[in-house]
């Protein structure tokens, strides 16, 4: 595909999904620096696969791109210092409860980044995007029962990674 055509398609897709990307990536990262990095990876992913994003399945691809980008950004972050420091949880204020809650939330986000693509998508669509099982099933290419199963498995995985969260 000629570069100019690619560019035009890229800009079209970017404009169409800008709001969605910002929303999903912010919910997955909760941190400005991490968000910026995930956004860059997402844009790169959109550019790389732009030919596939011109049809009905574009939304499904964008989800995949966003989740992959989120995983990469988290991997970069965790790789650098091995754990999430308080400074990275994007919290204003010094209230102890807020800090602890924020840390738990950050742990949940991190754990989502480590789920399999299908389970990550299931969790994001169900809880972060508050979508119905019918929509989740259509996006995952499975039945409604399958969608419910993916969500349950994802939750079970998150619990296994995080244990019982307490305040």
């Amino acid at each position: 595909m000629k570069h100019s055509k690619r560019l035009a398609l890229f800009e079209k897709v970017k404009t169409e999904y800008a709001g969605f990307l910002a929303s999903v990536l912010w919910k997955l990262t909760g941190d400005k620096e991490l968000f910026a990095e995930a956004m860059q990876y997402s844009l790169l992913g959109i550019w790389q696969h732009v030919e596939k994003l011109n049809g009905r399945k574009a939304g499904s691809y964008i989800y995949r791109i966003a989740l992959t980008a989120n995983s990469k950004a988290w991997r970069d972050r965790i790789g650098r210092d091995g754990q999430i420091s308080e400074a990275h949880v994007g919290v204003d204020g010094a209230a102890q409860e807020k800090i602890v809650n924020a840390e738990l939330t950050a742990n949940v986000r991190r754990a989502i980044s480590q789920l399999s693509p299908k389970q990550a998508r299931a969790i994001v669509m169900r809880y972060l995007e508050q979508q119905g099982y019918e929509d989740i099933a259509r996006n995952l290419g499975c039945s409604e029962a399958g969608a419910r199963s993916n969500v349950s498995k994802a939750l079970a995985n998150l619990r296994a990674k995080l244990g019982n969260l307490t305040v």
Binding site: W26, K27, K32, Y127, V167
Partner: peptide, 27 residues
């Protein structure tokens, strides 16, 4: 006990701050 589902729902209810929108636009 804060369950994971509660945290997930809280995350889901978050609005994207204006500052983050700006980061998205700049990036």
């Amino acid at each position: 006990n804060r369950k994971i589902e509660e945290i997930l729902k809280e995350i889901g209810g978050e609005d994207v701050p204006a500052e983050v929108h700006k980061i998205a636009e700049e990036t």
